[in-house]
Design a protein around this nucleic acid. Sequence first.
DNA 1: ACAAATTGGTTGTTGCTGCAACCATCGTGC
DNA 2: GCACGATGGTTGCAGCAACAACCAATTTGT
Lengths: 163, 163
Amino acid sequence: MTRLVPRLDAEESAAWLSLVSLLELLPSALDSQLQRDSGLTHYEFAVLSNLRFSPDQTQRMSALATATNATLPRLSHVITRLENRGLVERVPCPEDRRATNARLTDAGRRDLVRATPGHIEFVRRTVIDSLDREQLDQLTAIASAITRKLDPEGKFAALPDPQ
Amino acid sequence: MTRLVPRLDAEESAAWLSLVSLLELLPSALDSQLQRDSGLTHYEFAVLSNLRFSPDQTQRMSALATATNATLPRLSHVITRLENRGLVERVPCPEDRRATNARLTDAGRRDLVRATPGHIEFVRRTVIDSLDREQLDQLTAIASAITRKLDPEGKFAALPDPQ
DNA sequence: ACAAATTGGTTGTTGCTGCAACCATCGTGC
DNA sequence: GCACGATGGTTGCAGCAACAACCAATTTGT
């Protein structure tokens, strides 16, 4: 029986293993930091950040869902919880009565603004400061190349630049 | 009020955003592929792979948990499910009667061997083939550097080399 | 030798995500 | 202008993970 898929050679394997470790460790580290310091999930943080930089701090549910790479049911549940905590509110969309807009409240904006510096600092400490300038560019190229394969249309917008 | 944490500049921001996209898209893509083609979670796959390359296809629960970066309760539940599906069995540890060993069954080994080529092929298509040789080395260095910050003792062993 | 502390695992509860079913509104074709 | 499909969103249910509480076996201290 011939091997249709060649196994990974030493360099490929090293790259893959180190990437797997990263995928395993970094997301949970990010979540822990945000949860501990701000009571926010990384996903909730992404939702709030997205709203913050949208016109009128408002976005359609469906747009917000694709921008955060989530299913609509997931977003709906998350928005419900955030609404109960007073960080977000649902507003019926005037142009399309099927649609719902999610809007960041003042309290939500306040919490987000409070959470952001600590998050950036953590990102800097764990990621940015581990790399030199050259590696920063390399990382951008590498991650973009892989992402392009997974999301060719670039529908997933990631986080807006936290600032 | 002075800004204690300098915001990210353009290059830093680009690197971070592209990395976030990767963290968001790749794990779910890996999970979908494995789930669809083999009925295994990525985590279950990691557990089985780890057992496969352990002496006597056996590992202590606690060792297996740290090697897969999981809490002990999580592993215990997963092993219970895998045991119900006949892919793994629990064996009391002779040397320490508190301890439990998890052992890969023949059926488990068979399923794993079946699942592996498709998984490798997917990894190749999405990750490896997106990069050139130079980038492969760069990725190894970058991911290792970040991982070192998150897990200085290197307790997390990642997957053993799938082959 | 025995009490206390530590280690190794399991079980129960709660919270979040995915999927499927569902309802309401909008657009299209006739 | 009305039926039908498509779109936008919510709700209910099932499965998995985190945390805490718990039990059993072992080690430590005296």
